[in-house]
Design a protein around this nucleic acid. Structure first.
Length: 835
RNA sequence: GCCGGGAUGGCGGAACUGGCAGACGCAACGGACUCAAAAUCCGUCGGGGGGCAACCCCCAUGAGGGUUCGAUUCCCUCUCUCGGCACCA
């Protein structure tokens, strides 16, 4: 939609306020000519790295959400520059990936043509947005000078044993014809195209992020990050404290007495054990059966001959069903394996079932079922008529109180039907029972994480080739660093097929290569890496852009990193932000960087919606920033975006509101243009100015941009009350306050005030505490907590004085007919008379 | 289901550490200027009631309870809503 409200027009169609088109072009050109936004990386004395998440250069162009985030970052960056810091605000493009490739396939243009065009378009859009970007150090993740080092990062992990290949059940998107990371699957569907994800077994490259699970979790407490982002990471890592318990499988002789069970041909002679993971070892006396996942490796071995057919059928069914059905259905299913195990606590025989509600990926792929105290086990036990035993009593329960549903509450619970542990509180029992079984070699305290290793290979074209060569003689070989980058060949047919192999495999001259070890004919790895690997280290590259001999220069990195401030969307709370942290830890442990957390401070910005609804092409409510910048100017658009709600919450974009912001900037413009240099400032105006400087200076670092703008508006209202002409001293600091929000206008006004240097090379005004001191205080007077008036007294007036003054006010006195029972007095602030 | 965030005028939103609820902006209305309009400037603007009037009183921050001299703010219960996770043992 392009139904933007036209700017107010003057008598002959001229704009009524200042003309942003003229002002902004002037300063855009001047800043470009002076390289004003170029950071002196080597010479900087007070480095400040203000990073924002780099965009994916889509064909649609810059989204208003991008601009909202970038502007928020830019204001903070410009503010820091006005504090005298050497600010580095870089920009780049995250241009590899399925998203780009799918778009290229759709429009029938090769990504190697498409991406540069998109980047050019983004660049021109960004140039007009008034961002303080250092264009001398940009990144394009698809450029060989960048992905050379992405491949290098891969080899760093390989060297440290943190990259490995394994055949794994992976998420396969039948539409995109590729493997997806767990993180790219949402509720069983491909997060990109929405197709139902299938399971396939393929050779894949993984990064061992699980080795860093505890550190990734623990460090979260030390980071200055948005609480919601930390919570999301914590949940994603999913630490569970519990125990592994061993259940011995009864052999055929032991089983023979109880049921018609035979040792199967494959059964080993040694006694088998089923190991389960539980977070509730305290409930082991209530474990009345054991369940293994249909994919459990011991399932065959423990299945008895007479159950073989049903188990096989069940497993086949479970393997066939799609992921969504498996993970979302609540209806329990399962089959008896025919075998029994010994409950390590009670020593009793309990049956082993196979059921798909137990997942092979988590824990040991087997659970002890405690139907009395777990909802899923309860449902299963009810369905298959398995025994349910109460082993935890809530307050008021007895050991015989019947269970109509699983009792899962832990707090206040005490054990029952648990032998020598009866009456133990749950917490205590967890420890004691684990220790007791541990002593008998039947248990081990363990910690489990939900985090899985990161699958980084993609059977696609548009990504950095994984730098590996397979030689029949020498085996798997790394591409030596001197041979990097492994260039992605420009092939016309990059369409993925159903083979499970990347399209690169069809490109023979690229695929066949000499073995770096023996020189004989060998084959390249044809998978490319995940885009999240590209974006997992880009912040390390920015300050060192231009250095072709190293991924990042040691001295520069020491000086500029970790990043001082990072701003981005919370949609990357777990993927990008977790991978970046992981890679930084790896590089730290490899001695490549001296910090192990990349982002000291991270703030998640909110989402911009339009007229109460999410913006989308189908709704036709997408805001095109270009139209608004054309109509209103970048300064007004920026300020409006920041004014429409709290930055960390986002806001509702409405065309109607933007004129108020233009009006405000016009008022600033006229105040400065018409100010007098000779007269004396008004003390009340000066006081308000001091308060405003203080407020704006506090609000910007807190990213409370909407209230900072409101404070400046208030000041301008005071400044221009009536048709008053402002004094120069009243407006000069205002120009600096406005500068982070409306940089072009501020630069123009600063020059108008006679400054030859750029406003961004000036120093933020200091507020004068002395000027803010008043010798009187306005005290709120309440009676029984209800405000009944206020009195003006001298600063620091005593309670008696204030009370007397208050009682002299008729509006107060009429509510105080008797002696107050109690008086609450806060000096210079409040008096509350309780009667 | 679990974990977060939120609910304040016609609308977007403000309110420090518990201390004058509704800053600032939009929309609306009235006025000045104008032949007229636009722009600009001045004013009104949560609801109800009282007063000729300056003004005065009561109610009000999703609902209900509680703590407190005093609650948008803290506690409990509930409703709705947005986001994340979801058979994770």
């Amino acid at each position: 939609m392009t139904d933007t409200v036209p700017p107010p027009a003057g008598p002959q169609g001229e704009p009524a306020g200042y003309d942003p088109a003229v002002v902004e072009r002037k300063w855009r050109e001047r800043w470009a000519a002076d390289a004003a936004n170029r950071t002196d990386i080597e010479g900087a004395r007070h480095p400040f790295y203000a990073l924002m998440m780099f965009p994916y250069p889509s064909a649609e162009g810059l989204h208003v959400g991008n601009l909202f985030a970038f502007t928020g970052n830019d204001i903070y960056a410009r503010f820091q520059r006005l504090q005298g810091l050497d600010v580095f605000e870089p920009i780049g493009f995250d241009a590899f990936g399925i998203h780009s490739e799918n778009h290229a396939l759709k429009v029938g243009v090769h990504p190697m043509e498409l991406i540069p065009a998109n980047i050019a378009n983004f660049t021109s859009q960004l140039t007009r947005a008034g961002l303080m970007l250092d264009w001398s150090r940009t990144i394009d993740t698809t450029h060989p000078s960048y992905y050379k080092w992405t491949q290098w990062v891969f080899l760093q992990l390989l060297d440290r044993g943190l990259a490995y290949k394994k055949k794994a059940a992976v998420n396969w998107c039948p539409n995109d014809k590729t493997v997806l990371a767990n993180e790219q699957v949402e509720g069983g569907h491909c997060e990109r195209c929405g197709a139902l994800v299938e399971q396939r077994y393929l050779e894949q490259w993984f990064f061992r992020i699980t080795h860093y699970a505890e550190r990734l979790l623990r460090n979260l407490d030390t980071l200055d990050w948005s609480a919601s982002t930390r919570a999301a990471q914590r949940a994603w890592i999913g630490r569970s404290d519990g125990a592994e318990l061993h259940f011995r499988v009864l052999n055929s002789f032991e089983n023979a007495g109880s049921a018609a069970v035979h040792v199967t041909a494959e059964s080993p002679a040694a006694p088998l054990e089923l190991t389960v993971f539980t977070t509730r070892p305290d409930t082991v006396f209530g474990a009345t059966y054991v369940v293994v996942s249909p994919e459990h490796p011991l399932l065959d071995a423990i299945t008895t001959a007479d159950q073989r057919d049903v188990v096989a059928a069940y497993r086949a069914r479970a393997g066939r069903q799609d992921v969504i059905a498996r993970k979302t259905k609540k209806e329990k299913s399962g089959v008896f394996t025919g075998s029994y195990v010994l409950n390590p606590a009670t020593g009793r025989m309990i049956p082993v079932w196979a059921a798909d509600y137990v997942l092979m990926e988590y824990g040991t792929g087997a659970i002890m079922a405690v139907p009395g105290h777990d909802e899923r086990d309860y449902a299963f036990a009810r369905k298959f008529a398995l025994p349910i035993v109460r082993v935890v009593m809530g307050p008021g329960d007895s050991p015989q109180t019947s269970l109509r549903e699983a009792y899962i509450e832990e707090a206040g619970g005490r054990l029952c039907n648990s032998g020598e542990f009866n009456d133990y509180p749950v917490d205590e029992a967890k420890r004691q029972i684990t220790a007791w079984l541990e002593a008998k070699g039947l248990a081990r305290a363990v910690v489990n994480y939900r985090l899985h290793d990161w699958c980084i290979s993609r059977q696609r074209y548009w990504g950095p080739p994984i730098p590996i060569i397979y030689c029949d003689t020498c085996g798997m070989q790394q591409v030596p660093e001197k041979d990097l980058p492994v260039l992605l060949p420009n092939i016309p047919d990059f369409r993925p097929d159903d083979s499970g192999v990347s399209p690169l495999a069809r490109h023979a001259e690229w695929y066949h290569v000499a073995c770096p070890e023996c020189g004989r004919s060998a084959r390249r790895e044809t998978d490319v890496s995940d885009t999240f690997l590209d974006s997992g280290w880009y912040f390390l590259r920015y300050p060192s852009v231009g250095r072709d001999d190293v991924p990042f220069d040691a001295a520069i990195t020491r000086k500029w990193l970790p990043v001082d401030s990072y701003i981005g969307g919370n949609e990357h709370a777990v993927l990008h932000l977790l991978y970046s942290r992981f890679l930084t830890m790896v590089l730290h442990d490899a001695g490549r960087v001296d910090f192990d957390e990349p982002f000291r401070k991270f703030r998640a910005h909110g989402l911009i919606i339009r007229d109460g609804a999410k913006m989308s092409k189908s709704k036709g409510n997408v805001v095109n920033p270009d139209d608004y910048i054309d109509t209103w100017g970048a300064d007004t658009f920026r300020t409006y975006l920041m004014f429409l709600g709290p930055f960390e919450e986002g806001g509702d974009f409405r065309d109607a509101g933007i004129s108020g912001v233009k009006r405000f900037l016009d008022r600033v413009y006229f105040s400065v243009r018409d100010c007098r240099a000779d007269g004396e400032p008004d003390p009340d105006v000066l006081l308000k100015l001091q308060q405003t400087i203080k407020k704006v200076g506090e609000d910007i670092p807190a990213l409370s941009y909407n209230t900072a703008i409101a404070a400046m508006m208030e000041y301008v209202n005071v400044l221009r009350r009536g048709e008053r002409r402002a004094q120069r001293r009243e407006v000069e600091p205002l120009v600096q306050l406005v500068a982070p929000f409306a940089p072009h206008l501020a630069a123009e006004l600063w020059q108008m005030l006679g400054h030859s240097a750029d406003v961004f090379d000036s120093r933020w005004p200091a507020f004068d505490a002395a000027l803010m001191k008043r010798n009187t205080a306005t005290i709120v007077v309440q009676v029984n907590g209800k405000t009944r008036g206020s009195v003006v007294v001298t600063q620091g007036a005593a309670e008696q004085v204030v009370t007397a003054a208050a009682m002299a006010e008729p509006s107060v006195a009429k509510f105080v007919t008797t002696q107050p029972k109690k008086v609450i007095f806060l000096p210079d602030k409040l008096l509350n008379l309780v009667v």
